[in-house]
Amino acid sequence: MRTVDTINQLLAQLPVGLSIGAVLLLAALGLNFTFGQMGVINMAHGELIMVGAYTAFVAQAWVGLPSSYALLVALPAAFAVTGLLGLALEAGLIRHFYGRPLDTLLLTFGIGLVLQQLARDVFGAPNVSVPAPPWLAGGLTVAGMHLPYARLFILALAAACVAATAYYLSRSRSGRRMRAVIHNRDLAAVSGIAVRRVDAATFFLGSGLAGVAGVALTLIGPTGPTTGTNYIVDAFLVVVVGGLGQLRGTVLAAFALGLLNAMVEPWSGASLAKVVVFAAIIVFLQLRPQGMFTVRTRALT
């Protein structure tokens, strides 16, 4: 009887874990490019998420789109806005700091603070409200489990983003160039690939994905100048646990951490669940410092 109860409770937490995983995945997907692939310790990633969230706000409150489809318009708009912002940061600042990881850390941290203050000046310090589309309000109940539509939407969006990036990396010419540069930058350069242009494209893609995440996160969390700081640490954890620059690693790590969190929380409470997840990550990284997957590379570094 007891074990049946426990198993039922674990099963009931399954959708919760998946939806936490989907949020982690969306937040970390862009970072997988800027940090994972390019090695830029991008502390401003959270603020790019924040800019994406504000794009959803602007689409509704300033442009005046009705909430029924403003979200759908905001997704590509946020991708473009944060992508271009990332591109500008890369071209104007970050590019000058390649190969100096500690300086990049400080630089991007500073960029993050500047962006937070900009948001405060433009939109005010209090959180703003981004009403969810009416069709995402309720949820459906399957076998006694309640699945909110907002969570299902985030899950679907995360899946779509992963599918699109996977397709881009493996099928398109520019995606293959991107992978070539990661595997062996010098060899890619002598083969005629414009590595500088690939760097810029990678940063554009990673930043744009952060924007998409920002729009989706308005469905479940606050939209304010410090929105990004809520997600940045988790995003880094996912990328590091998954293995730098590994798409499948990021996906697996996000869902693993989400499920672990959801399974532990009913017994331990939210604070301790976080501790358990951190402890598990520390143990895992002790055993496997390189993360779940590593790039097989000929580079000696």
């Binding site: 919760v16 936490i20 949020v23 309640h146 997600y231 409470g269 939210a270």
Partner: peptide
């Protein structure tokens, strides 16, 4: 009686438990 860290954003578990 449930506590969450300051700045916590994941309330699915608690919301389901309340429901």
């Amino acid at each position: 009686e449930e506590y969450t860290p300051l700045g916590h954003t994941e309330y699915s578990t608690i919301a389901n438990a309340i429901a």
